[in-house]
């Protein structure tokens, strides 16, 4: 009797393990119909749960933010000084730019593709529980005009892009997901590179493959490059703010052609996001 029980247990365990591998194989072959069905059925329930739990989340968030507030205060003060200087310089540059445009009679060229996008605002309703994956579920779906690869932004900057769409919800692959990668440039020098995450560290991105002959300094901003070549186009329009260079040692730049970037968007505490829909896709 006992032996029979043990044999049955082992059989069930083996069946479950084999089922896991079969599911894994099916996913990589692209058969995810059931998955989409379950996600579609449960997304309204997730939205309700999300709304119901918001006060509790805010309470825990308040405790967490109180711990961080002291250190953040001094950092923000020093950042404010830098930003003020940049704002003054920016105003001057805008004025100069306007005058030059008038002189050259330039209109909005194809580079300003961002204007072709329409923003749709949605809320985050779920988040992946593990640090190995970095994705969130939002309450916007194909019914709202969302498509795969649409850029997603928050009030602070780029958040990621849509990785899959269902009728009532979509998954956003965040900048910190291991599969994420963005063509970006440092402004003002215009040094181009490739932004990728460091898995497990949501406050740090790496700007790779930068031109080692041109220096990048801490405090400079990183924006999407939005390249367009031979009929292909980046998923992201040019000029979306990505982050700020926080560490740019000269030796590291010369040796490994990389600098560290802190994303502008608080990717750990996302609540409201905007999906840029309708941009040109080729």
């Amino acid at each position: 009797m006992y032996r029979k029980q043990v044999r049955r247990r082992r059989a069930v365990l083996a069946l479950l393990i084999v089922s896991s591998f079969v599911l894994l194989t099916l996913t990589y072959q692209g058969s995810v119909g059931l998955q989409r069905g379950v996600s579609t059925v449960f997304s309204p329930l997730q939205s309700v749960t999300d709304r119901a739990l918001k006060p509790a989340r805010d309470l825990v968030g308040w405790f967490d933010k109180t711990f961080d507030a002291r250190g953040e205060n001094s950092r923000l003060k020093s950042e404010l000084v830098v930003v003020r200087r940049k704002a003054v310089a920016g105003q001057e540059a805008l004025q100069e730019n306007g005058e030059l445009r008038k002189l050259l009679a330039l209109d909005r060229g194809p580079v300003l593709a961002a204007s072709a996008y329409k923003e749709v605002t949605g809320s985050v309703i779920a988040r992946s529980p593990t640090a190995w994956r970095s994705s969130v579920t939002i309450d916007l779906g194909s019914g709202d005009g969302v498509h795969v690869d649409d850029p997603v932004v928050s009030g602070d900057g780029l958040v990621g892009r849509i990785s899959s769409v269902e009728p009532g919800s979509s998954q956003v692959m965040l900048l910190t997901d291991h599969a994420s990668g963005i063509a970006a440039k440092v402004v003002p020098p215009g040094v181009q590179g490739w932004v990728e995450p460091e898995v497990g560290n949501p406050e740090d991105l790496i700007l790779n493959f930068i031109d080692s002959t041109r220096q990048v300094h801490a405090g400079q901003d990183v924006v999407t490059a939005g390249w367009r070549a031979q009929g292909f186009e980046s998923h992201f329009p040019p000029g979306l703010p990505v982050g700020e260079v926080i560490r740019a040692p000269v030796l590291e730049q010369e040796a490994s052609q990389r600098v560290d970037v802190r994303p502008f968007a608080d990717l750990r505490n996302l609540d409201l996001v905007q999906v840029l829909t309708g941009g040109s896709r080729e």
């Binding site: 479950l16 599911l23 894994l24 996913t27 059931l34 998955q35 994956r133 994705s135 579920t137 899959s164």
Partner: peptide
């Protein structure tokens, strides 16, 4: 969990089982 997050099926199942 994998269904709701539309992630690769089987990974979380394997670990949690």
């Amino acid at each position: 969990v994998d269904c709701l997050l539309v992630e690769a099926l089987g990974i979380t199942s394997l670990v949690l089982l």
